[in-house]
Design a protein around this nucleic acid. Structure first.
Lengths: 137, 137
DNA sequence: TATTGTTATACTCTATAACTATA
DNA sequence: TATAGTTATAGAGTATAACAATA
């Protein structure tokens, strides 16, 4: 049981890494870029991903160097910055995020009912907690 | 469905990281030390974890600096090295590996039959492939 | 010549502490 | 004073290339 869980998570992690690399991204970069379906503040990204603000600064800096995102002033708060995906970044984000081929491939061997059952078991396993979501790494 | 999977994997990854930290290890170190239930060659570790040999050299070096493992010559092959856990390392390994409290806690909300069902669904999801196992990160 | 492991190097991720600018 | 973000710094993970010792 425990073995099945770790083996599955392993597979997932590797698939995520591979998918990111296919788009020229690291896992952390794919994770952050994946949130930029709309403009977001640095602080928002840090909270979503669950890491330190200074960390997000570096990751965004690298994405910016590659012209995948831009930083601009935030109208409502002079201290804050809004991060937006460029056209290139949006294309990359959409390709990575929408595709999610690796997750679909993983559950492909399951029929519809089994997929539903799996999802519900996983949700139950995590408790009723709405799950904050995150993931760099 | 897809969301449930990533949320679960997220939770698992974070729990793994936390568990490692509680034993003063990084995830990668916990992962490598976890294989040292018996002496292993560097090349074995690299293959098991799925990373470059030079990477294992660094990780083992750090574990060695902390007196958790030792390197010694390999009787059968003068080129190879055998890595063994010290008493301290073995205690740490056993504590982390055997406990696996974080996995048990995750599946605690499920009754016995549900756990079996989950494991079998996950195995099926990964295909019949025996799953090489791994994970640094 | 091929294999095992190490070293040098470089890049990324990550957090902490100190700092700037704004609120 | 408190908050948003950046910079400097440092430790760790990771891979590539060049290398030593052994097979």
């Amino acid at each position: 049981m425990l073995g099945a869980l770790s083996a599955f998570v392993d597979d997932y992690n590797r698939a995520y890494e591979r998918a990111a690399q296919q788009h020229g991204l690291t896992s952390a970069q794919a994770c952050v870029l994946g949130r930029l379906d709309r403009p977001r503040r640095m602080s928002e990204l840090a909270a979503a991903v669950g890491c330190d603000a200074s960390n997000i600064t570096q990751i965004i800096k690298r994405l910016e160097n590659r012209s995948l995102v831009q930083r601009r002033a935030c109208p409502e708060d002079g201290r804050a910055r809004q991060v937006v995906a460029t056209a290139d970044g949006e294309a990359t984000r959409a390709a990575f995020d929408a595709s999610f081929a690796f997750v679909r491939e993983m559950v492909e061997p399951l029929d519809g009912e089994e997929q539903t059952r799996l999802a519900s078991l996983l949700r139950k396993a995590m408790g009723a907690a709405p799950s904050r979501h995150g993931r760099p790494h």
